[in-house]
C-alpha cells in the first residue's frame, strides 16, 4: 500500500501534474505527522499504516499550502468526504487538487478528477458505525437532566484552546464567529456558559457539513468527546432528510417533513 502511494506521488510530482503532495510521514517518537513533499526524490518519506488517521483536508485550505501550487493529497474516506463538502461550498475548483484515494478496504482508488471523487463519495454515503450509533443511543437513553449533567461535566474541562477548530477541515472561516466582537455573541472566557456556547455553536455550524472524521475529538487536549454532538446531528439529518448531498439546513423541498412543528 505504502509503496503504491509513494509510486503515485513520484509520478504526479515528476510529471509536473502537482507541485506538492500532502501525506503522512514520520513525526517525533512513534507519531505520524503531515508532510509536504515537493520533490519526487523525497516521496519515499511518505508512510501509510494504521496510525495515519489525521484528516489532512484542512491543509488544503491554508494560504501557505495553496501558495505551494497544485496539491495532491493522500485521502482516506473522511478526507474524500471533506473535499466533496468543500467543493459543495465552492472552496475548490477541479484544477486545484488531485487525490490519491484510499478506500475503507485499504485499496488505492483511482479518482482522476474531482467529479469522480464526488461520484465515489455519493456511492458511499456517510453512515455511523454500529459502535458510534450505540454511543449516540446511550446518550439518547439518558434523561434530559442526566444528559445536561453529562455535557456540563464534559464541557467544563474545555480550556478554549480552539484545537477542535484548528483541526477541523470545515472550520475554514477567515473570521470565526467567536472572534466577532461587535457584538460578542459567544463569550470568550472558558467558564461554563462560554464553553457551552462555543461547543453548541460549533456543532450547529457543522450540522449537515461534518464528515465524522473524528479529528476534533483526537485534537482535544482534555478529551471532550466532541464528535458525539456531531454524530447525533448526522443521525438526525439522516432520519429527517435522507442521506442526500444537499446541505440540510439550507435545502428546502416541498415534501420535507414538518412533523417537528406542533
Amino acid at each position: 500500500m505504502q509503496d503504491k502511494i509513494i509510486q503515485k506521488a513520484k509520478e504526479l510530482l515528476s510529471g509536473g501534474a502537482v507541485q506538492v503532495v500532502i501525506g503522512y510521514g514520520q513525526g517525533t517518537g512513534d507519531r505520524v505527522r503531515a508532510i509536504f513533499i515537493q520533490k519526487p526524490e523525497d516521496a519515499g518519506r511518505l508512510i501509510m499504516d494504521g496510525r495515519c488517521v489525521q484528516n489532512l483536508a484542512g491543509y488544503l485550505m491554508k494560504h501557505e499550502v495553496r501558495a505551494l501550487g497544485r496539491a495532491a493529497i493522500v485521502a482516506r474516506m473522511p478526507v474524500l468526504r471533506s473535499i466533496a463538502q468543500l467543493m459543495y461550498e465552492e472552496q475548490f475548483k477541479d484544477s486545484d487538487v488531485a487525490v490519491i484515494g484510499i478506500s475503507d478496504a485499504n485499496e488505492l482508488v483511482d479518482l482522476p478528477d474531482l467529479n469522480a471523487l464526488k461520484e465515489y463519495v455519493r456511492a458511499n454515503p456517510l453512515k455511523l458505525t454500529p459502535e458510534e450509533q450505540a454511543e449516540v443511543d446511550r446518550l439518547d437513553a439518558m434523561t434530559r437532566e442526566e444528559r445536561w449533567a453529562f455535557w456540563m461535566e464534559e464541557t467544563s474541562k474545555c480550556i478554549k484552546c480552539y484545537a477542535c477548530r484548528a483541526s477541523c477541515p470545515m472550520c475554514y472561516c477567515a473570521r470565526c464567529t467567536v472572534e466577532v466582537n461587535q457584538p460578542q455573541w459567544i463569550s470568550v472566557p472558558s467558564h461554563d456558559l462560554g464553553n457551552l456556547e462555543w461547543h453548541i455553536m460549533r456543532a450547529m455550524h457543522l450540522a449537515g457539513r461534518c464528515v465524522n472524521c473524528g479529528e476534533c475529538t483526537r485534537a482535544c487536549p482534555v478529551g471532550i468527546p466532541l464528535r458525539l454532538l456531531n454524530q447525533r446531528i448526522i443521525a438526525d439529518i439522516a432520519d429527517n432528510f435522507g442521506e442526500e448531498e444537499d446541505y440540510a439546513l439550507a435545502a428546502f423541498k416541498p415534501d420535507d417533513k414538518e412533523d417537528f412543528i406542533r
Binding site: 461550498e89 465552492e90 472561516c173 477567515a174 444537499d246 446541505y247 439546513l249 439550507a250 435545502a251 428546502f252
Partner: peptide, 23 residues
C-alpha cells in the same frame, strides 16, 4: 486583505426563499 468576512461558501444561495442571493 479580507474585503468581506464572507467565506464564499455559497450555502446561503439555496437557503434564500426569494432567490435573492448570488455570488
Amino acid at each position: 486583505p479580507l474585503y468581506s468576512t464572507c467565506t464564499g461558501c455559497a450555502l446561503c444561495v439555496p437557503a434564500c426563499p426569494y432567490q435573492a442571493i448570488e455570488m
